[in-house]
Design a protein around this nucleic acid. Structure first.
Length: 574
RNA sequence: GGCUCUGUAGUUCAACGGAUAGAAUAGUGGUUUCCUAAACCAUAGAUAGCAGUUCGAUUCUGCUCGGAGCUACCA
């Protein structure tokens, strides 16, 4: 139980004893005391005035006195207007710190037995990944890790959009204008080559719109299983997959399951029959099948074209059913941009109409677009920020900054290289994940991502500083004496550390890595102030020195765990 | 037109209905015989507008004005 809940339950006892009213613990508001006031946790007493029938000050005073008398963990309290600020005892914080340092799985909840599938990334195979995909990938990967830390069994899944008219366009252009070019002949990543084909196709269609007919013919041949078309399709997709794999590897992202649309696009047709039998779908005279959602404030949605072929949502319905059944899912999270909000609204509603009780346990993690100063990224206008370029640029930036500082002259080349990658990627990941997922965010390519202030490298640097101290104190003891007196600042840091598990839960409940990012930043900032004001290694009192070493190693541990949930590694030196 | 999301310092981001709306960056002024200055300290600067609910509203409701997305027998 965290301290806020504990205090709320004690306050509830106090209210019962003083005023004879039993209150639900959750109805009492307890929060961390604001910096400018004295105290650790604050009970808001305004909502209790109706029960106490006294002034805010008198109510706070009465509850405070009761709490102090009955709970040895409490050291003191004060009342400011309607706020009861409670200070926990020095011993309480010592115990808190010692439990943090001894718990290897601090912040990780025991298994809750639930299985959640998180689908993310889900790229098209006709062009390389760009900044928008990067946000999707980082969110999906981080949310998966956060859900895991919150006790869930998580399956990371991706659905590769490997068939359809878009890939045929690239295939067509390659046949006509690329003269047998391959990734190795062009010294180019496969996804970039196929992306170039797609761009070339756009030009071809502009010159002669009739080429679209050829492409459609190609798609029909593909569906028929024409060996030549299939072979070309397979070859070019392989190129793309190889390219994607490199990008995923560079980003540190992996999947437990990969689905291919070419294997799932026919799913869902049986569901259409089922829906017709159940009477939730209707067949129009021309043979097309629809679901009427007008009574729910939405439109009519087509599920089967008049020629009997299925549309996108049809396979989504089938895929959802298959996954819930095969993997025994408790819920499924789709990490998909907010432009598809309507699609998911429709999807859930139709599944519900089909009688699937798990339809409510589908969650669309709808995230905002990444915009450039001039607006949305548009591939046609060449304003997309390529993922590989961006990663490389961040690496170079990290390298330049590190070299300018001259702190790493004795480090082996390979080690340096890895470090630059860690820092560059840390900056990029933090930059994206610190923003609330549902908000549109802005990326200005002209201003490179910063390494100062509220950034990934700032937190990495903080960690490296701690590790540096700990290296110098290798021979010192790391015992925490029971009676050691931590300073107010030190207690403050312990308080922050102890709020980490609740923060993980909160982040899992709201699918928001941003909460973890903000937490890590706050912790790093607190530590840096402490570091600046306190000469840790100069301390002559050995008990105090040990306690400080314990404290800073706890900070390093929690920084590393929290940033780990964002997929960011913290170096020991930088 | 309809539906959905969104509007906080010059800029990029915070703030379960709670105390004097926090940071970062850009600006100004400082800190290095001291454990890493990718740091620290000081200073200045914002809730689009109007009502309502509440002891209390950036947060909830309504309207106005901005911005974005969706509204395919595309995926």
């Amino acid at each position: 139980m965290n301290a806020e809940k504990w205090l709320a339950s004690k306050a509830s006892e106090a209210v019962d004893a003083l005023y004879g009213t039993k209150l639900d613990t959750d109805s009492l508001q307890v929060s961390i005391t604001r910096k400018e006031f004295e105290g650790d946790y604050t009970l808001v007493v305004f909502p209790l005035l109706r029960i106490s029938r006294q002034s805010p000050e008198a109510t706070g005073q009465a509850i405070g006195e009761y709490l102090l008398e009955h709970n040895p963990e409490l050291g003191s309290f004060n009342v400011v207007k309607g706020f009861l600020n409670c200070c926990l005892s020095a011993r309480y914080w010592n115990e808190e710190l010692s439990s943090i340092i001894s718990d290897e799985n601090f912040g990780v909840q025991p298994s809750n037995g639930k299985t959640i599938m998180v689908e993310f990334s889900s790229p098209n195979t006709n062009k390389p990944l760009h900044l928008g995909h990067v946000r999707n990938n980082l969110l999906g990967s981080s949310v998966s890790d956060i859900l895991k830390a919150a006790g869930n069994n998580v399956i990371k899944a991706t659905l590769v959009n490997d068939r359809g008219v878009h890939i045929c366009k690239s295939m067509y252009a390659w046949q006509k204008r690329f003269d047998g070019a391959t990734p190795s002949s062009r010294h180019q990543k496969g996804d970039h080559l196929v992306g170039d084909c797609y761009v070339e196709y756009a030009k071809m269609e502009k010159e002669n719109p009739a080429v679209l007919d050829e492409v459609h013919k190609m798609l029909v041949d593909w569906e028929k299983g024409d060996p030549q078309v299939r072979a070309l399709w397979k070859m070019m997709n392989e190129w793309v997959f190889e390219g994607f794999d490199q990008t995923y590897k560079a980003l540190g992202i992996s999947f437990d399951k990969t689905y291919y649309e070419s294997q799932t696009y026919l799913l869902g047709k049986e569901l259409v029959k089922k829906g017709l039998d159940m009477g939730v779908f209707v067949k129009d005279p021309d043979g097309s099948v629809w679901c009427d959602l007008t009574a729910d404030g939405l439109d009519r949605k087509i599920l089967l074209r008049s020629d009997g072929t299925s549309v996108y949502i049809t396979q989504d319905l089938g895929t959802a059913e298959k996954r819930f059944e095969e993997s025994h899912l408790d819920s499924q999270v789709y990490v998909v941009g907010n432009e598809q909000d309507y699609h998911f609204q429709v999807l859930k509603l139709i599944l519900k109409k089909l009688g699937f009780e798990w339809a409510d346990r589908i969650y669309h993690l709808s995230y905002g677009m990444v915009e450039l100063p001039e607006g949305k990224m548009k591939s046609r206008e060449g304003t997309v920020v390529d993922a590989d370029d961006l990663i490389e640029k961040m690496y170079q930036e990290a390298k330049a900054t590190s070299e300018a500082s001259g702190k790493l002259v004795d480090m082996a080349e390979q080690e340096k290289d890895e470090l630059y990658h860690q820092i560059g990627l840390g900056a990029l990941k933090y930059f994206i994940l610190k923003v609330d997922p549902k908000k549109t965010m802005l990326f200005d390519p002209k201003e490179s991502i910063d390494f100062n202030g509220n950034t990934g490298p700032f937190i990495q640097y903080t960690h490296a500083r701690i590790k540096s101290i700990l290296r110098k104190a290798e021979d010192k003891s790391l015992e925490l004496a029971e009676d050691v007196q931590l300073s107010a600042k030190e207690q403050r840091i312990v308080k922050l550390l102890s709020s980490y598990p609740a923060k993980v839960q909160e982040a899992a409940a709201s699918f928001s890595p941003a909460l973890i990012a903000n937490f890590a930043y706050e912790l790093a900032k607190e530590f840096n102030q402490y570091y600046h004001d306190t000469a840790i290694l100069k301390e002559t009192d050995s008990k105090l020195l040990s306690a400080r070493l314990v404290l800073i190693s706890a900070v390093a541990k929690v920084l590393s765990k929290s940033m780990g949930l964002l997929g960011i590694q913290l170096p020991d030196r930088m």
